[in-house]
Amino acid sequence: MGLMLFQGISGLYGGITLVIDPSGDLLQIPISILENSTFENFMVPGLILLTILGFFPIIVLYGLWKRRLWSWKGALAVSFALIIWIGVQIWMVGYYPDPPLQLTFGLLGLVLLGLVMSPSVRRSLEPSCNQEPEE
C-alpha cells in the first residue's frame, strides 16, 4: 500500500504540475524532448499522469485499505499502466538517466506487479480466490 500511495502522490504532483504549466518549466523538463513525439506540449501527458497514474492509484489504495474485491484488479491495472507509461515514454522521447525517474518508476511498476502477482497478495485480494466454489 505504501508503494501505491507513493505512485498516487507522484502522479498527482507530476500531473497537476504539467497541467498548470504545459511547457514543463515548473518541473524543469525541456519542451525540446517532445520534438519526436506526437505532443506539442505536456498538457496531454500531464492529464494522463494526473488521472491514470495519480487519481486511479489513490482510488486503488482506498480499495486495498478497505479490502475491496476490485482492488486486486485495480492494483494490477496500475502496475501495467505504469510499466506501459514508462515504456511508451522511452520509446517516444528516449531514455534519460539523470535524474533516474524513468528507471525508478519503471522499477516501481515491476515491483508493484511482482507484489500484486505474489500468491499471498492474490489470495487476500483477488475476487476469484476469495469466493467459495459453487456446487
Rank of each mutant, 00 (worst) to 15 (best):
S128T: 11
F56M: 13
V78D: 08
N41K: 09
I59P: 04
E35Q: 15
S124F: 07
L112I: 09
W85C: 01
S118E: 11
I31M: 12
V88H: 01
R122T: 11
I59G: 04
F42G: 09
L49W: 05
L125S: 08
S71I: 01
I33H: 01
R67P: 00
G54K: 05
F55Q: 02
E40S: 15
I52E: 07
I84N: 05
P127H: 02
F56P: 03
G87H: 06
L53M: 11
G74I: 04
V111A: 10
G114E: 06
N36Y: 12
F42V: 09
P119V: 08
V93W: 06
P57T: 08
W70P: 05
K66W: 01
A75T: 05
P99C: 06
N36C: 01
I59R: 03
I52C: 13
G109D: 06
R68W: 10
Q102F: 06
P30V: 02
P97G: 15
T104C: 04
V44K: 09
L115T: 03
L82T: 09
P99G: 07
W70N: 08
L50S: 09
W91C: 04
L34P: 04
I90K: 02
S79T: 07
L103H: 05
A81I: 01
T38L: 14
S118M: 09
